[in-house]
Design a protein around this nucleic acid. Sequence first.
DNA 1: CGGCTAATGCTACAATGTTGCATTAGCCAA
DNA 2: TTGGCTAATGCAACATTGTAGCATTAGCCG
Lengths: 147, 147
Amino acid sequence: MPSPDVSPAAHLIAASGGRVTRTRIAVLEILQDSPRSLNHDDIAAQLAADGMPHDRVTLYRTLDWLVEQGLAHRVIGPDRARRFKAGGETRSQHAHFHCDRCGHVLCLESIRPEEQFTLPAGFEPDRAELVFHGTCADCGRQRGAKA
Amino acid sequence: MPSPDVSPAAHLIAASGGRVTRTRIAVLEILQDSPRSLNHDDIAAQLAADGMPHDRVTLYRTLDWLVEQGLAHRVIGPDRARRFKAGGETRSQHAHFHCDRCGHVLCLESIRPEEQFTLPAGFEPDRAELVFHGTCADCGRQRGAKA
DNA sequence: CGGCTAATGCTACAATGTTGCATTAGCCAA
DNA sequence: TTGGCTAATGCAACATTGTAGCATTAGCCG
């Protein structure tokens, strides 16, 4: 019997019916530890920093799998690169904020576009993506001293 | 002296201070004639159908130039490919609708996300992107007969 | 018409993501 | 614990979308 000190990430992965591998655990933990969404480079760099050798393709497939299992979700950035974040929040219709200064993408859980709009007749939306661009709270605080 | 039957597209291009070339006129007219946004393939196919030989890179540069001049605007699709549409509407903050059936992207001029939301303290948005996903009016009409 | 140079077209390259296949390693049962 | 099945990995090659450099073509203007 395994000791109970396996990470929550490992539990989630096991509960999804997939095999619990080093890569999946490491990637999911990286996503869970980050307050913002990460792209492939971010994650690859973190894996490297953790001394985890890995393959580019495996990372793509691992992330796809996590999204498929609802353990992570994807945001498509303005640089047309995908960013990932832990939690299967895709279907909970919250907005995102992309900061033009630091480049980070943050979730705005309180804002839900679906509830706010009435579309023209005939349109049947089943989800909505709302992304704000501008200066985030962190960068805004620094601005007084800087600009 | 040129006859007055030059296209409106040619006038717009001339007014922007750039040279009036076959490619620019053709691309701008294609965008103007389309009710939906087009990606590079769409435009290249249309140019080919019009018997206009052209280069892939030139098309990219032509589109960039049109956007720069405010004669067209860009939408970034979920397939992380750029789509273009005539008119410099980028800064008028309207929403878009991506149809999951036909793949087309339409503008919803009546919906302006900026006016609807209050962000958490500290966030300073200067623009917003709102994209709905679902079934568009056209595909919805066909659905009764189909599904 | 002639010349200046913006625009084009070609080739090569960059970034992001995908496919195929041989090898490794999780998981389960004996 | 061990052995075997097969999911997951790692590698190489490829696909798509977009850029950069540079020689050539063709708008524009005098």
